[in-house]
Design a protein around this nucleic acid. Structure first.
Lengths: 219, 219
DNA sequence: GAAGGTAAAATTGTCGACAATTTCAGGAAT
DNA sequence: ATTCCTGAAATTGTCGACAATTTTACCTTC
């Protein structure tokens, strides 16, 4: 499986990753206030390090900050999720389109192999696919776009927030096999070097995902 | 004219705005190294403030940072410009589409008035339009999308970098009147509440702009 | 002269303390 | 009882100093 290779180097890196994880996974509640002093003692680092971590979280749209007042974890709302998916659909559609042109033959082969390995797990009835497999699939296509800005915005700015919604609204749900078929068709379009079709299929795939999420949001 | 209303509150705010301006306008050369100590003395603030400003610049993609090594102003390359415009075309097209649905009638009226005032300046032969007028136009449509993520990515993450390219490659050029006509048609589509057409026209408009820039890049 | 190693210098990362601002609690006036 | 003011407490913003890391310069070795 693809490694995301986000090696923490400095203490600020570690604190940032830890804080991000704690927020996304719900250890720190959505909407709660982030006290620099408190986090400083909890994570055993100085306030300066915590401040840098919080600044980075702000750029991920995971926290909101007001000058001289402080930072709060974002609140999760149906409108926010809709806005998020609007942007995601457009950007990932673009990623698929660019990937159909810019991925190397070797990268496309790897993508097909990845898909095959997913097929094995799906066929065997394991639930593994949903989580890591889906992320890996989208991540590879994103990288295949070869567009730095696109990669940055999606990977650093949107994916974690989407996962936060999924985790905290309890969406570990199904859609495994149907999503797999959609993935397969997208890869086929990319293999055929058909950018327009790849974009359309990716947008539709994400649109389905959103509708699936929105339906569960009624609870 | 619309105010962008980015009031600096803290010293870090002021330093960030000043640094960003100095980089975009070319006072600090593209590709050059940013020494925290040096900037600290130049801007008369502590290194902590400079560090926070640099961190924010990194999220604007105006500087790149390596742990334990330092920060450099980004380098301007034809490939980078192309990538940037790929993303811009997709996102602003989306903004126009959403704006056609989400702008209020009053906001659309204001947009039409803005266009009329631009028409006066264009007709009178002033060169004013190109710079501030164009930015203002795109900014209003972006706000009209009512999508926080979209607004954030474009306004904080892409516009300044695009301006950096324009300024430093000496693009104060023409395309005034033709661009005005394109703007007019976009506003018409929005006024007609026609999302699909608004997106197509906006994408085409930005595509033209890119080709215009790329042509000048041959120098 | 080139390659590799070592110590000094320079630069970034981290820390604790102080300053500035906001928030909270209590009391006075209407 | 409500509003406004005041001062204390708490929180964020800024600073200078020290630690860790990288870069540079110089020396040794082949």
């Amino acid at each position: 499986m693809t490694q995301f290779n986000e090696n923490p180097i400095t203490a600020a890196d570690k604190t940032f990753f830890q804080l991000r994880s704690d927020i996304v996974e719900g250890q720190i509640k959505a909407g709660s206030k982030l006290s620099e002093a408190e986090l400083s003692t909890n994570y055993q680092v100085s306030r300066a390090v915590v401040r840098e971590a919080i600044n980075r979280l702000e750029n991920c749209h995971l926290v909101e900050r007001k000058a001289n007042v402080g930072a709060r974890v974002v609140s999760l709302t149906p409108e926010g999720l809709a806005e998020l998916y609007q942007v995601r659909e457009s950007l990932e559609g673009m990623a698929a389109r660019l990937a159909a042109t810019n991925m190397t033959d070797e990268e496309i082969n790897d993508l097909n192999e990845l898909l095959n390995s997913h097929f094995q797990t799906v066929k065997s009835g394991e639930t593994y696919y949903q989580e890591a497999g889906d992320v890996d699939f989208h991540y590879r296509i994103l990288l295949g776009s070869k567009n730095k800005h696109l990669i940055s915005v999606l990977f650093e700015g949107i994916y974690h927030l989407i996962r936060m919604y999924r985790v905290q609204l309890g969406m570990a749900g199904p859609r495994v096999t149907t999503a797999f078929d959609e993935h397969r068709h997208i890869v086929q379009a990319i293999s055929n070097r058909d950018p327009e079709l790849a974009e359309i299929l990716m947008r539709r795939h994400i649109s389905y995902t959103q509708k699936n999420l929105a339906a569960k949001l009624i609870d």
